[in-house]
Computed example of a mutant assay.
Amino acid sequence: MSMPPTSAAVPRRVLGTVSTTAYRRLVRPAAWRLDAERAHHGTVTAVDLMGRSALTRGLLAAGGAAVPRGEPVELLGLRFAHRIGLAAGMDKDGRGVPGWGALGFGHVELGTVTARPQPGNPRPRLVRLTSSGAVINRMGFNNEGVEALATRLRADRAAGRVRLPVGVSIGKSKVTPVEEATEDYLASVRALEGLADYLAVNVSSPNTPGLRSLQDAGPLAELLTAVVGAADVPVLVKVAPDLTAPALEQAVGVAVDAGVRGVIATNTTLSRDGVDPRDRAVAQAEGGGLSGAPLTLRAREVVGQVRRLTDLPIIGVGGVMTGADAAALVDAGADLVQLYTGLVYAGPGLVADAVAATSGARWG
């Protein structure tokens, strides 16, 4: 880190540590008695409810989970209270925007949402690898469709409940042929007009057949040029951690030429490198994208590669399990950092820890 955390952030780090300990001892054991996907949906429902309750917001503040004091960041024409946000995949349908703010996030990325409602892949499709600090998912963009998300976000904005930047990750509907992907994405762009603060084009999930082929130069150029031309907000592209260095360089070059305003690095990985030996048999047997601690170093590496290729803003995602992991992504070149799997293992106290660790870093 180039600078230590500000003194105002230190109490939040202490509170975050207390909150994390309580989560691991009390909340996580109960939640993990449930199927992983049921626990996931229960979490989103709880966040939705707490975000609409003044009493709950007060209790969160007393427990150290209120908005942490970090260094504000000006990026993409937006002001972020600090660097730490929620990654796409946690709140696909935009149910908990006020609650995520109450838990201390500086921004939230909803989705991935598709133009058409879809159930996703057959269950079970979400697996914890507890010894590895990891999760495998093959959800397949299960969501209620972009119109449902747009309706919720419109209502939250009208009621004044949106108090942080909100991005929306858009993907291809499974039933849409890859050759018709551009129009499918554009349907989502049109539905979200005036509602999102930025759009993230997801072409890197491993769980929709053919989707990653859209990272190839020709299809990617067509798609991004069309989305950038149609969008009323900054457009970012999300890249996979499994791209080779030449493929990543090509994808970033295409994105820059298309007028994309930023890069999100990374998504889940098909690799099983770094999995604890106790989880290896399950990891090899379960298909889908791996997230969590085994992705920590690879995500950091990809962020560094992207930073060497472009001056565009970068959102770093992948394997952020501690505040130190968040700080390392910033030092590698990320301007913002997003959390997902780390929340499963550390709980909401991770937000305060990550804010404290990244306050005053690189762009502070």
Rank of each mutant, 00 (worst) to 15 (best):
V320Q: 00
V320C: 03
V320G: 05
V320K: 00
V320N: 01
M321P: 05
M321E: 08
M321Y: 00
M321T: 09
M321F: 08
T322A: 04
T322V: 04
T322Q: 01
G323W: 13
G323I: 09
A324S: 15
A324M: 07
A324V: 07
A324F: 01
D325M: 11
D325V: 07
D325N: 14
D325K: 00
D325S: 11
D325H: 13
D325Y: 05
A326S: 02
A326L: 06
A326C: 06
A327V: 11
A327G: 15
A327Q: 14
A327L: 13
A328L: 14
A328K: 10
L329R: 11
L329T: 03
L329C: 06
L329W: 02
V330L: 06
V330S: 09
D331C: 01
D331H: 10
D331N: 09
D331L: 05
D331R: 15
D331F: 01
A332S: 12
A332M: 04
A332N: 08
A332Y: 05
A332H: 09
G333M: 07
G333I: 04
G333D: 07
A334C: 14
D335Q: 08
D335I: 06
L336R: 03
V337C: 08
V337W: 08
Q338M: 03
Q338Y: 05
Q338A: 15
Q338C: 09
Q338F: 00
Q338G: 14
L339H: 12
L339E: 02
L339F: 07
T341M: 03
T341E: 05
G342F: 11
G342C: 11
G342E: 10
G342Q: 10
L343C: 11
L343M: 13
V344S: 04
V344A: 13
Y345E: 09
Y345T: 03
A346G: 05
A346N: 14
A346E: 15
G347F: 13
G347M: 13
G347Q: 10
G347Y: 09
G347T: 13
G347K: 13
P348Q: 08
P348M: 04
P348N: 04
G349W: 10
L350H: 06
V351R: 02
V351I: 12
V351F: 04
V351W: 04
A352L: 01
A352S: 15
A352E: 06
A352D: 10
A352Y: 06
A352P: 01
D353T: 02
D353I: 00
D353C: 06
D353V: 00
D353R: 15
V355D: 11
V355S: 13
A356G: 14
A356E: 15
